[in-house]
């Protein structure tokens, strides 16, 4: 089966470890992810103001590209791209007046788009297309005994119109990790915000948040945390450099993209995970537990 996928800027550069592990793992599950041709940056955040239609052009163009190339679905792995594309699509589907303004504005590039393309997150594909039961059967290296802390952040589940899972208590990551054979930690911090874009201008905010969220995982006995968003990943993983300096009681915890654990459980070559791009090296943990040689 072939599905179009929209990578987005960060997945192509800083988060290659997310992309490479996702592509390899999905191939193993007989799903070929085909990169949409001529994609552009989605804008990263959905413009929330009613007059900010200019920022809806970027996501709309990407959805158009998918339709032109014959797709009715597009898969994303970055939570921010997912949120932006899905909300822009929702706007096109539900707001005639704004849609008309956007179409008129783009008069030089004919737009025939009514929101036909379905925006999916890769986790949804694993749940609804592959199915967690089926996935369980494909696991070659069950992650037995590995205690994992699922972390959703904000953009994967909020607001309501995203509809991926329950807003207050999503479980898709838990269900996925259980299918891989892991043990899942119950953590009330799983939908707390990582501090997001404050990592640029107010690192101290992100350090506070990161410590609170990571420390909760450690206290509950987690071996590692699992997430899907490259911005959460930067704040949870790379910012540990600052967190350990401020909080001496905190000694660090490895952070995985969900796709990296998928690749391991499917028995793929460790190299597809590009662990060199993870700040806290997860290999010692994986080796110690005999998940990789």
């Amino acid at each position: 089966m072939k599905l179009f996928y929209y990578p987005g800027c960060t997945v192509k550069t800083k988060a290659k470890n997310l992309e490479a592990s996702a592509l390899a793992a999905m191939k193993e599950l007989d799903i070929e992810l085909v990169e949409v041709a001529s994609w552009n940056c989605c804008g990263t955040v959905f413009g929330m103001s009613t007059d900010d239609l200019l920022h809806q052009l970027a996501p709309l163009r990407n959805l158009l590209r998918v339709k032109e190339q014959g797709g009715d679905k597009v898969v994303t792995m970055c939570s921010m791209c997912y949120n932006t594309l899905k909300r822009a699509n929702h706007l096109i589907r539900t707001d005639e007046e704004k849609k008309k303004l956007l179409v008129d504005f783009m008069s030089e590039e004919p737009v025939h788009y009514e929101g036909e393309v379905e925006v999916l997150h890769l986790l949804e594909v694993l749940r609804d297309v592959v199915g967690f039961e089926k996935l369980k059967e494909k696991v070659k290296v069950p992650l037995q005994g590995l205690k994992l802390d699922p972390y959703y952040g904000c953009m994967l589940t909020r607001p309501q119109e995203i509809g991926l899972d329950n807003l207050e208590n999503p479980t898709i990551l838990e269900d996925f990790l259980v299918a891989l054979g892991a043990e899942v930690i119950k953590d009330p911090m799983k939908t707390e915000c990582c501090g997001s874009y404050h990592t640029v201008n107010a690192v101290e905010v992100v350090v506070e948040r990161g410590y609170g969220i990571l420390n909760s995982a450690v206290k509950k006995g987690a071996d590692a945390m699992v997430l899907s968003c490259p911005l959460c990943d930067y704040n949870m993983d790379h910012r540990q450099r600052e967190i350990v300096k401020k909080y001496v009681d905190f000694t660090g915890i490895p952070i995985f993209y969900f796709t990296q654990l998928l690749a391991i459980a499917l028995g793929l070559e460790t190299s597809v995970n590009h662990f060199d791009l993870n700040y806290v090296d997860p290999l010692p943990l994986l080796k110690k537990r005999n998940f990789v040689a």
Binding site: T10, T13, A15, G47, S196, Y197, P230, L231, Y234
Partner: peptide
């Protein structure tokens, strides 16, 4: 005022979303 070091280090989604908001 963003330094070359920050540009090198930060993911694009952090920079773009920050500028979009601020």
């Amino acid at each position: 005022e963003i330094t070359a070091e920050q540009l090198e280090e930060l993911p694009q989604i952090a920079l773009i979303s920050n500028f979009r908001k601020f």
